[in-house]
Write a protein that binds this DNA or RNA. Structure first.
Lengths: 176, 176
DNA sequence: ACCTGAACACCGTTCAAGT
DNA sequence: ACCTGAACACCGTTCAAGT
């Protein structure tokens, strides 16, 4: 007799996201996830090929979350930057996963679209991609360094972020 | 009777670095390191408190390597940027480790000094730190994205790096 | 059809015992 | 003084057996 399904992919990914955020990617064990959704570890392999596939699903869910925030913040570039920073702070572990070779690139491309459109409104279609990449690279590096503790000494991080952002926005507008 | 030492901390770290670079941080097992230096895994705990301490030592050695390259490239900002990119490509796994909360921040601060001095020569002492951070954050984010495959589509990565760099250098020089 | 216990290979780590 | 085998707890993963 067929057993009724005891959990769902969504529930598994949600549990995995919580574990990743509280215990880090290294803390994501199949047993911990299984316990959280009320099954045994081997059952998870019916849904995800292996631990790595689950980790990719976690990354993808995080990217979808970020994309929503971007869409809500667009087309203001300062608000996009603030949304990015807020996301990185709330989901620092998932943020790190996004810059791993196994991250789903199509999802990342989609998340970048609001940024590219906002850049286009500011500097025109022709330079939109370059401008968006400049801003994204800077913000990504800044947040990565901030999360790693690189700014622990050396003054007001808030102010440094605002300084960098306004500087880049001004620079981007004036040429091509 | 005292046994003669069969390996050294330096040899252990060197072996660990090779493993990290070929198999990734996840591939760094105490047994693999031990085999490489000709001892058994438990012996490594005489030298490093645990696997994490060894990983920190690997990160620190990589930062020392980067610092040497920076010192050789200074005070040219384009050469510093090129050195950073070359390092990231040759030691992509260690590069990622550098932006982890457990990375040794004092070593990272030291590695940043040639960049800050080069920035000072370009924009003056007063804005050197801000300028160096702007450049470093951008380059770090760019390389992180490049290594993750974010630029797999979308044209000439080389050109995009040069574009971003020259744009930032021009922007940095003109104001404060 | 879905779930599980049992099993396997592998890992980090400790420690008493060897030299 | 340094090294090791043996052991423990834990992990990912597979699979035959349950319902």
């Amino acid at each position: 007799m067929p057993s009724p399904t005891r959990t769902t992919n969504e529930e598994v990914v949600a549990a995995a996201r919580e574990i990743v955020e509280t215990a880090g990617a290294a803390g994501l064990t199949m047993q911990a996830v299984a316990e959280r959704v009320g099954v045994r570890a081997p059952s998870l392999y019916k849904r995800f090929a292996d631990r790595d596939a689950l980790l990719v699903a976690v990354t993808e869910a995080a990217i979808a979350d970020l994309t929503e925030r971007f869409e809500a913040a667009a087309p203001s570039l300062p608000r996009l930057a603030a949304a990015y920073r807020a996301f990185a702070k709330e989901h620092s572990e998932a943020f790190r996963l996004m810059f791993t070779p196994s991250a789903p690139q199509e999802a990342l491309q989609r998340s970048a679209e609001p940024v590219i459109r906002a850049a286009a409104a500011r500097v025109g279609e022709e330079h939109a991609l370059d401008a968006a990449r400049l801003l994204t690279a800077w913000a990504t590096g800044f947040l990565q360094m901030e999360l790693a503790g690189a700014f622990r000494l050396g003054g007001d991080v808030e102010r440094a972020f605002e300084y960098g952002l306004s500087h880049l926005l001004a620079g981007i507008e004036q040429d091509g």
